[in-house]
Amino acid sequence: MLPSGHRMRRRDEFTLAVRRGRRAGRPTVVVHLLRREDAQADQGPDRETGAASLVGFIVSKAVGNAVVRNRVQRRLRHLVRAHLDRLPGGSLLVVRANPAAGTARHDDLAADLESALDRLLRPTSKGHR
């Protein structure tokens, strides 16, 4: 289970991460990451610097029925928990499940998530978001 201090609950945080964050897509997931520096520029000074990174999940009806969607979300929560220490403090991370996630094996889901996170967490060159 994802620790409660790391759970994203507010709609505006989801919207901010998806619209302003960097994105990495894989066959089963799309990951959006908004680093604290970028979030502070958009939200203002109310977001404290030592804040924990927040993680949210989007699993639409295209993934499957309620049982499948809940299973996919539980699997993603479990997988993201192992990567919390890699996230920059105060960042916003949204993991969106693609329809293929409903039938994907656990290993494939884990590999896609790790690959997307690796891409987002590596240093960027100037001129790229």
Results as ranks from 00 to 15, higher is better:
Pro3Gly: 11
Pro3Val: 07
Gly5Gln: 13
His6Tyr: 13
Arg10Phe: 03
Asp12Asn: 07
Asp12Gln: 12
Asp12Pro: 01
Thr15Ala: 15
Leu16Tyr: 12
Leu16Met: 11
Ala17Glu: 12
Arg19Asn: 13
Arg20Ile: 01
Gly21Asn: 10
Gly21Glu: 07
Arg23Ile: 02
Gly25Tyr: 04
Arg26Ile: 06
Thr28Pro: 00
Val29Tyr: 09
Leu33Arg: 01
Glu37Thr: 10
Asp38Ile: 00
Pro45Ser: 05
Asp46Gly: 10
Thr49Asp: 07
Ala51Ser: 12
Ala51Gln: 04
Ala52Val: 05
Phe57Val: 00
Phe57Asn: 00
Ser60Asp: 06
Val63Phe: 04
Asn65Cys: 08
Val67Lys: 10
Val67Met: 08
Val67Pro: 01
Asn70His: 15
Asn70Thr: 08
Arg74Trp: 05
Arg75Ser: 07
Leu79Glu: 15
Arg81Glu: 08
Ala82Asn: 06
His83Val: 00
Leu84Ala: 05
Arg86Trp: 14
Leu87Lys: 02
Leu87Ile: 05
Leu87Cys: 03
Leu87His: 05
Ser91Pro: 03
Leu93Glu: 02
Val94Leu: 10
Ala97Tyr: 10
Asn98Met: 15
Ala100Ile: 01
Ala104Tyr: 12
Ala104Ser: 13
His106Asp: 15
Asp107Trp: 14
Leu109Cys: 09
Ala110Phe: 06
Asp112Pro: 01
Asp112Val: 02
Leu113Thr: 04
Leu117Phe: 14
Leu117Arg: 11
Asp118Leu: 13
Leu121Thr: 04
Pro123Lys: 15
Pro123Thr: 11
Thr124Asp: 04
Ser125Asn: 06
